[in-house]
Every structure is written in C-alpha cells, then in structure tokens.
C-alpha cells in the first residue's frame, strides 16, 4: 500500500500519510516525500488515514516540519485519530505543529501561519 502521497495546490502542499508507518518504512518514505516536494511552500498534513505510527513516523513528520521552518513556511496537521493524538501529545508535538480536526480548519489556519 502506498503510504504517502503529495498533492501540490497553488499555495501549499497537501501531504497525506496512510496506514501504518513503522521503522523499516522510514528511509523509503523519506525519499518518496522529498522527491515530490521540490519547492518551499506551506504544508497541510492530512492524517485522516494514518492508523499507526512509531517514533520513525514522528521523525518523518518532524523532518518535514524542519524543512518548512527553515524555508519560513508554515505547516499544520488535521484529522489525527485518538492514538496518533496521544502519541503526539506525549512527544509534545502540538507545541510546534498546530493540529486541527478538519481540512477546512487546516486551510484557514495555513493561510494565517503559512
């Protein structure tokens, strides 16, 4: 199953993570991600289809966030399930990556922070 896809909109990328992301997925996913993202633009991270993540998945997200921050672009996420929210909370991710429930909220937010 393809675990990541990237759609380039006019003002931002939408990066969708899907399924279960574990340690051995990390390098291929990272390569795939940065093949598709060529220029610095804000990122909306769609987590609605992400079922499970371990620390490698967190690392992937943090590397994308760093890439955005270094280019002065914003990043927001939406649609995380309860497990993902709990993991993000333990890792203090919400303090550096805004999380909302819906795509509409994410689009509004990215226009403010992007």
């Amino acid at each position: 199953m393809n675990q990541i896809d990237v759609v380039k909109e006019q003002m931002y990328y939408v990066v969708r993570l899907k399924g279960r992301i574990k340690s051995y997925d990390f390098m291929p996913l990272k390569e795939e991600l940065y093949q598709d993202i060529k220029e610095v633009q804000p990122v909306i991270l769609n987590l609605t289809e992400l079922k499970f993540i371990d620390t490698s998945g967190l690392t992937l997200i943090l590397s994308l966030l760093r890439w955005c921050n270094e280019g002065n672009a914003g990043m927001v996420s939406y649609g995380a399930n309860e497990f993902i929210k709990r993991i993000f909370g333990y890792a203090k991710i919400p303090s550096i990556l805004p999380m909302v429930d819906t795509c509409e909220e994410a689009i509004i937010l990215i226009q403010k922070v992007g």
């Binding site: 620390t55 690392t59 943090l62 203090k92």
Partner: peptide, 14 residues
C-alpha cells in the same frame, strides 16, 4: 531533545 527534529531517540521517553 524531544522536539529538536533529531532523527532518532525519543522512543523510550514516549
């Protein structure tokens, strides 16, 4: 090191 974007090392803390 939790939110410093480093590539490894937060699993045991979590």
């Amino acid at each position: 090191e939790l939110t410093k974007y480093q590539s490894r090392g937060r699993g045991l803390y979590l």
